[in-house]
Simulated assay, not measured.
Amino acid sequence: MRLRNKPWAVELVNNHPESVLQDPDPGKAIDWHSRFAKPDQPLEIEVGSGKGNFIITKAKQHPEINYVAVELQTTAAGIILRTKLAEGLDNLQILRGDAALLDSFFPQHAADVLYLNFSDPWPKTRHEKRRLTYKSFLQTYQNVLKETGHIEFKTDNAGLFSYSLMSLNNYGMHFDFVSVDLHHEAPEIVANNIETEYEHKFAAKGNPIYALHAHF
């Protein structure tokens, strides 16, 4: 969902290039080591972070891990940045850019985990290639993830979940965990689950949350 443009967010993002990379050149390597206080820590990436509740909570709970929030909207990036600065989260960076270019922004096999939380379902068939679990995106994620890395995916959209199961399976991925009602049938996962803004909203209405973990 597109957020209403907030001038303060644009100004904040523009004033903090040390925390937000905006539309980086895909042909130029990014020096991630210089952007983190502890560059040798494991790296985890969330694609489509929205207002950032998930990735911010992760960064607060796990200072021993570095995180990158990938978000296309400047307003969303600004909302994440505001909290990052207030909380002093030096293990969180924000990349404002296109997820289709993800493997141009990171070294090969750099990340341990990649999170896809409540992505746009793009329900029309003609928009299939825009879905973040389409095969071209999976190829990009495979390039970015370590050989021991994995994807964690959550959605409230049954159609997108069914499509994603098929897409990942056809790509040859291996499923470590699958749930069609995360909050009620997977207590061992829910115990450590961090809700996104959308997840909290949909779960409060009694809607099932679909989830999977998979590796290449």
Rank of each mutant, 00 (worst) to 15 (best):
L138H: 13
P42A: 03
L138E: 02
R131N: 03
L101A: 13
F105C: 06
L89R: 10
P123V: 02
L116P: 00
A86L: 06
A110P: 01
T125P: 14
I56N: 13
D98A: 09
L95H: 06
F137Q: 01
L81D: 03
F54V: 00
D103L: 12
F54S: 05
A86M: 06
N117D: 07
A99F: 05
F54N: 03
G78M: 02
S104R: 08
P107C: 00
V68P: 02
A99M: 08
K51Q: 13
N91Y: 12
D112Y: 09
L138I: 09
K129L: 07
G50Q: 11
V68S: 11
T125W: 14
H62R: 14
Q61Y: 10
E64Q: 08
K51R: 12
V70L: 15
P121G: 05
G97H: 02
V70Y: 06
I65Y: 12
W122Q: 06
G52E: 00
Q73L: 14
L81W: 10
K60R: 11
F106Y: 03
Y134C: 08
H127N: 12
Q93R: 05
N53Y: 15
A110K: 04
L81E: 11
I94N: 10
N117K: 07
L138K: 04
D98K: 09
E71H: 06
A69K: 12
P107R: 01
F105D: 01
R96F: 12
F54W: 01
K135V: 13
T57E: 14
V68L: 02
W122I: 07
A99I: 00
F118M: 07
T133Y: 02
Y134A: 06
T133P: 08
Q41G: 02
D90L: 08
L72T: 14
R126L: 08
S119A: 02
R131D: 06
F54G: 00
D98E: 14
H62G: 12
F106T: 02
R130Q: 06
E64R: 11
L114Q: 07
P121C: 07
R96H: 11
T74K: 12
K135A: 13
E71W: 13
P107V: 00
G48S: 03
E44D: 06
L89A: 02
T125K: 14
A77S: 11
S136F: 13
I55D: 03
Y67D: 09
E44F: 03
P39Q: 07
S49Q: 04
H62C: 15
V70G: 05
